[in-house]
Lab assay of single mutants.
Amino acid sequence: YKIYPYDSLIVTNSISVKLPKDVDRTRLERHLSPEEFQEVFGMSIEEFDRLALWKRNDLKKKALLF
């Protein structure tokens, strides 16, 4: 996945969300650098992957990456 800054990946309720063209809309968190991922989620990507799907989705919603 290509890395993008968190600010360019957050999704708000506005209709005209302009995400970069090559971003996987269903896995926005994968486009964060490991350092920024840790900062946003408070855990590593590996720890995040071990969580239940509902928990990952809940965290993504709170981080505006859903």
Rank of each mutant, 00 (worst) to 15 (best):
Y4R: 01
Y4G: 01
Y4S: 01
P5A: 07
Y6E: 01
Y6M: 03
D7G: 12
D7W: 12
S8W: 14
L9D: 01
L9R: 00
I10G: 02
V11S: 10
V11K: 06
V11G: 08
S14F: 06
S14G: 14
S14L: 12
S14P: 13
I15E: 15
S16K: 08
V17A: 14
L19D: 05
L19S: 05
L19N: 05
L19P: 07
P20Y: 04
D22I: 03
V23G: 02
D24M: 05
D24P: 01
R25K: 12
R25G: 07
R25Q: 13
T26A: 14
T26C: 15
T26W: 10
T26K: 11
R27T: 07
L28C: 02
E29N: 00
R30Q: 06
H31C: 02
H31I: 01
H31L: 03
L32Y: 01
L32I: 07
L32A: 00
L32K: 00
L32G: 00
L32T: 00
L32Q: 00
P34I: 13
E35R: 11
Q38K: 12
Q38F: 15
Q38M: 14
E39T: 14
E39W: 15
E39M: 15
E39F: 14
V40T: 05
V40P: 00
V40W: 04
V40M: 04
F41K: 00
F41R: 00
F41P: 00
G42V: 06
G42E: 11
M43T: 04
M43V: 05
S44K: 14
S44M: 10
I45R: 10
I45S: 08
E46M: 12
E46Y: 10
E47H: 10
E47T: 10
F48D: 00
F48A: 00
R50G: 12
R50W: 06
R50M: 13
L51P: 00
L51N: 04
L51I: 06
A52D: 14
A52T: 13
A52Q: 11
W54S: 13
W54P: 12
R56I: 05
R56N: 01
N57S: 08
N57W: 07
D58H: 11
D58R: 10
D58E: 15
L59K: 05
L59C: 03
L59S: 04
K60N: 01
K60H: 02
K61F: 08
K61V: 10
K61E: 08
K61R: 13
K62A: 12
K62E: 09
K62P: 02
L65P: 01
L65C: 02
